Computed example of a mutant assay.
Amino acid sequence: MSTPRFLDLPPGVAPQKRETPQGTFAVLEAVPVSGVIERWPALLVPGLTGSKEDFIAVLMTLAQSGRRVVAVDLRGQYETPGPADPTAYTCAALGADIDALAQVVGGGEPVHLVGHSFGGLVAREAVVDGVTKFASFTLMSSGPGPIEGRRARNARKIAEEVPALGLEHLWHHRFEREALAADVSDDIREFLHRRLVSNSPTGLSQMAEQVLTMRDRTDELRQIELPTLVLFGEHDDGWPPEAQSEMAARLGADSVVVPGAVHSPAVEAPETTAAALVRFWNAAEKHYLDTRSSAV
Score class of each variant (00 low, 15 high):
V211H: 06
D290E: 15
P144M: 05
E242T: 14
T3V: 11
D219V: 07
E148H: 14
Q77A: 06
A30W: 10
R215M: 10
T61V: 04
L94F: 02
A42G: 11
A275V: 12
R18A: 09
V70T: 15
L43M: 05
A182I: 10
R217K: 13
D254R: 15
A261N: 12
L289E: 14
P270Y: 07
H193A: 02
E271H: 13
A123T: 11
L62N: 07
M214A: 13
F191R: 01
P81E: 14
R5K: 07
G143K: 03
P240G: 06
D54S: 13
A274C: 07
R250H: 09
H287G: 14
E246Y: 10
R18W: 08
L226G: 13
R67P: 04
S198D: 08
L113Q: 06
G107N: 06
F134C: 03
V70A: 03
P227I: 14
G50F: 06
R250S: 05
V128K: 06
V230M: 04
G23Y: 01
T24Q: 12
A208G: 15
G260C: 13
G35I: 03
L28R: 01
S185I: 05
F232M: 09
E29I: 12
R151D: 13
L204P: 01
S200E: 03
P240K: 09
H169N: 12
V111M: 02
D254V: 11
Q22L: 08
V127T: 07
T273M: 05
S51W: 00
L229P: 07
A283H: 10
A152T: 10
D254F: 06
H193E: 07
A284N: 10
R39L: 08
L113P: 01
A164H: 14
G95E: 02
D237P: 04
A96L: 09
L121C: 03
S293D: 10
S200N: 10
S200K: 03
G35Y: 08
T80F: 01
Q103Y: 04
L139F: 11
P259E: 07
I158W: 11
S51Y: 00
P270N: 01
V211Q: 11
S198A: 13
V58G: 02
N199Y: 13
A243G: 08
I37S: 05
L62G: 08
G82P: 05
V267T: 05
V58F: 01
V27W: 01
K52M: 12
R156H: 13
L44M: 08
S245R: 13
V127D: 08
V197P: 01
R39V: 02
K52Y: 00
L170F: 12
A243W: 04
L113R: 02
S185G: 15
S205Y: 10
G115I: 05
V230T: 03
D186T: 11
S200L: 02
R292T: 09
L204G: 01
Q223S: 15
G106L: 05
